[in-house]
Design a binder for these strands. Sequence first.
RNA 1: GUCCCCAUCGUCUAGUGGCCCAGGACACCGGCCUCUCACGCCGGCAACAGGGGUUCAAAUCCCCUUGGGGACGCCA
Length: 472
Amino acid sequence: MAIVTRFPPSPTGYLHLGGARTALFNYLLARKHGGRFILRIEDTDQARSTPEMTEAILEGMRWLGLEWDDGPYFQSERTALYNEYVDKLLETGHAYYCDCAPEAVEAMRERARAAGLKPKYDGRCRERGLGPGPGRVVRFKTPQSGKVVFEDMVKGTIAWDVTELDDFIVRRADGSPIYQLAVVVDDALMGVTHVLRGDDHQSNTPKQILLYQALDFPLPRFGHVPMILGPDKKKLSKRHGAMSVMAYKDMGFLPEAMVNYLARLGWAHGDDEIFCREELIAKFSVEGLGRSPSVFDLQKLTWVNSHHLKNATVERLTPPFVEQLALLGIRDPDEAFVRQVIPLYQPRAKTLREMAEAARSFFLPTEALSYDTKAIAAHLTSAARQHLQALSTRLATLEDFSIPSLEAAVGEYLNTVGQPFKAIAQPLRVALTGTTVSPGLFETMAVLGKARVLERLKCAIHLYPEEVSRGS
RNA sequence: GUCCCCAUCGUCUAGUGGCCCAGGACACCGGCCUCUCACGCCGGCAACAGGGGUUCAAAUCCCCUUGGGGACGCCA
């Protein structure tokens, strides 16, 4: 039997790290076995669901490359279907109408809580034989004794005493279905075979199993993956990383790094750390899922990202790099030039953002270059300026601005003046980039090109520390 | 409060009774490389929550304690 998994976000918020990871695991499980991965939008809560959030979730899914085979389905469009099954529950005596006011039920719960018991609805309408009517909800008639036992794919045997459960609502007074009912009907009708979801749903599973049984649906396999925690080991919140995965895109993370890192949070395959999508699909298995919560670690994500950055092709990096440049105010850079700059920074940056910031000086016209005053004071000494002047004269006559040719030209100059490369390296670097940090000088010059190099040398040679500090 | 789940370095984790006085990775600290910064390489620091069992043998199995997480909605 083919495996069918699903990801059912509710459009009441962005696609955050936890949701993204759950989606990823379901995606991987389906892909691994050549099954289907369904996307279903759980918007039965009309008040809190918005089309904007739906779109934001889809955007996140697309960015991460979590392609779904089916959907998105919208539960809000399937109300009639759910009601067929609520009616069936009513007909078979598995559910009943209840006219208790919400406040009355809350009072019951409060009383139970005060008595040190589990807050529950007491089932007073169970045998009243009420029919439909305004203000009446439909409740599921939970068995009064027995246990619900299931084999969790990640945690093993889990058992619940049904007395822990109460007669939960399956249809609101306004006629709309409740989550528990809608998921069960959808999962059953859509043929979902494996339900991998967050730990926070574990307590819903017994209720849902009861519904499956009452509705005579075959049971899927359930698996509950532990939550992702913040650095303080508390549930991830806005302060940590419960923000949209798209925020990580803006921070300069690659989706493949995100996927790699998320997969490793709560899942392992021996000592392996770096995976591409294909490897994840090939190596993923529920056996590798951990049972304990894991703390989100931005530093490790950053490291994983730097790895993918280093190994990516220039073509792959060009579009997102250009986007990052745009965020820094550098618009429409020459694409051929961009492609030359990228390799210089791939091993030097951990994120695309860092990369763009570091490479910024490459894209500025000479007159807009900002020279670091300390760097000028330290390295553009009069002796250094003389070297730069002499070097500039030589380079002006150099036809071939390739790395070997530049190395030879500079080498010759150093030979004639009897100086080591160190003597001019930092001055040259400051002159070309305005700072003391940059990629290798020869590659920098080669990429910058003859015109820019001569222009910047000239500019730097005539630059005085006093002027710069006055000017800025 | 009640119930469910969980428990190996600071963090992510390997480990399914002997291969473990516990391995890898991030971070951190040294060193090498070197035109700066990175990358890379080499080395270091650092954990089986505690207590009882079971066993010839336990990080691995059982129990208790402690700690953590989750759930108790006409939210999903």
